[in-house]
């Protein structure tokens, strides 16, 4: 009888401690960090930087899994369906968690309902580049030229429906000149044709065109962020250059599947934020991809998505780009 009570008591005690114990024990195996784009791109660079710091902090390897395809939808769908046990994370972006919602009519995942926001890693300003042969040295010059010469009304983008495409459409809309969109499979080829003078201008990430600016093939006219970038302090913002209401920064964030235990989300948030504040992360992200590191709370990330999703849906509608 005493023995039976003891066993019951022991079982009761064990059942009480077992839940928090399993959360404490996390992680006991490697964690997968899904990058929904190809290796070597911006999201990959962010993912690898975060993963490196996270592995050191958690004592378990954090393995990058590149699952590219369909503007990030393949990797995002995979993460949305993964077990919410803290062993699957994902590097989400303005594409996967804002633009796609307005762009795809049948998106196989829900950027809001299927994910547990962890942190907004940071903002990345886009920049306005023009071919260096064009007789323009400022945004005002470009607008004047566009109004005068119908032959230069072309802009390149890294793909239909990407932020670089929508930026061009928005620009044409604000300055009141119809511009022809020329889509490319990724930034490099778009840069190649703007540098070669085939296409007049384009919007893309600030660091992506730095090499061609140095080579004298491109001119950097403005950044699309609300503030100037420390990497190009001489370059004005679009607002300073006279184009009002043109703010367009892409962003990078970390998500887990919806239902991941709160304890784990908290721990992940704390460790990732700590990692992002390190000198190493700042060197890689601020200098490498011109990111403005934010390291926000999960709530701030949710708020950002609530602002961004309708805004981009409206822009997509205006641009006429949708996908089934």
């Amino acid at each position: 009888m005493i023995r039976r009570e003891f066993i019951l008591a022991a079982a009761a005690v064990l059942s009480c401690v077992s839940l928090p114990a399993s959360a404490q024990a996390w992680p006991t195996k490697p964690i997968a960090y899904v990058v929904p784009f190809t290796a070597g791109g911006t999201t990959d660079v962010v993912g690898r930087t975060v993963a490196q710091h996270l592995s050191t902090a958690l004592g378990q390897p954090v393995v990058i899994e590149n699952r590219p395809g369909a503007a990030g939808a393949v990797g995002a769908t995979y993460t949305a369906k993964a077990k919410p046990d803290g062993y699957t994370l994902m590097g989400g972006t303005i594409s996967t968690h804002a633009i796609n919602a307005g762009l795809y009519k049948n998106l196989p995942y829900d950027p809001v309902k299927d994910f547990e926001p962890i942190t907004l890693v940071g903002f990345i300003p886009n920049a306005l580049y023009v071919n260096a042969q064009l007789p323009v040295n400022s945004v005002a010059d470009l607008v004047a030229l566009l109004k005068k010469d119908a032959n230069v009304r072309t802009f390149a983008s890294s793909g239909a429906g990407t932020s670089t495409h929508l930026a061009g459409e928005l620009f044409g809309d604000i300055v009141g000149v119809p511009v022809t969109h020329v889509a490319y499979k990724g930034s490099p080829q778009a840069f190649q044709d703007v540098a070669g003078g085939q296409v007049a201008f384009m919007f893309d990430q600030l660091t992506a065109g730095a090499g061609l600016v140095k080579a004298g093939k491109l001119k950097l006219l403005a950044v699309t962020s609300p503030k100037r970038s420390p990497l190009a302090p001489e370059t004005p913002t679009m607002a300073e250059a006279g184009v009002k209401d043109f703010e367009m920064v892409s962003w990078q964030a970390v998500y887990a599947p919806r239902g991941t235990p709160k304890e784990i989300v908290k721990r992940l948030h704390a460790e990732i934020v700590k990692g992002l504040k390190s000198q190493d992360a700042r060197d890689k992200l601020e200098k490498g991809i011109s990111m403005e590191i934010v390291a926000s709370s999960p709530e701030e990330l949710t708020a950002l998505m609530q602002r961004e999703i309708p805004r981009w849906a409206a822009l997509v509608k205006k641009s006429g780009a949708t996908v089934d």
Binding site: T38, A39, G40, G41, D44, V45, R48, T49, P188, Q189, F191, Q192, A195, T207, A210, G211, L212, K214, A215, K217, D283, K284, K287, G288, I289
Partner: peptide
């Protein structure tokens, strides 16, 4: 010379350079 990758391998090498803090291009 220009920082334009001609295939996925070159794109990865550019990624590697960026992670090392080197901006690919003429510089």
């Amino acid at each position: 010379t220009l920082g334009i990758p001609s295939n996925p391998v070159m794109a990865l090498m550019i990624g590697a350079m960026i992670m090392q803090g080197i901006q690919p291009g003429p510089s």
